[in-house]
């Protein structure tokens, strides 16, 4: 089991605060619409969740199988 960041994209304002603090550069904001996490890169450190002004990033446990599915 590993922790990964998940974003409620509907509420995302695409400000980029999460992208800025991510040590693994796992977050991108494609087309300026909402932030996306590359689960392969994410190490679940939680820095993005702390920085997000809208508090819409949550860390959840992911089993190794689901990880390969995503």
């Amino acid at each position: 089991m590993k922790r990964k960041a998940f974003i409620q994209t509907k509420q995302c304002v695409a400000c980029g605060c999460c992208m800025k603090v991510c040590p693994r550069s796992a977050i991108t904001i494609p087309n300026g619409v909402s932030a996306q996490v590359d689960l392969q890169r994410c190490v679940g450190c939680g820095k993005c969740a702390a920085a997000c002004p809208a508090s819409i990033i949550e860390l959840s446990e992911v089993s190794n199988e689901t990880q390969t599915l995503v």
């Binding site: 695409a14 400000c15 605060c17 300026g32 997000c52 002004p53 508090s55």
Partner: peptide, 25 residues
Amino acid sequence: LYKPRAWCVVCPMGSMTQLVCKGKC
């Protein structure tokens, strides 16, 4: 009161640029 960049959640410029991006997308 809230998070350091809480303004970005309501910022009219940020809302406008995101609307433009959503439209383009």
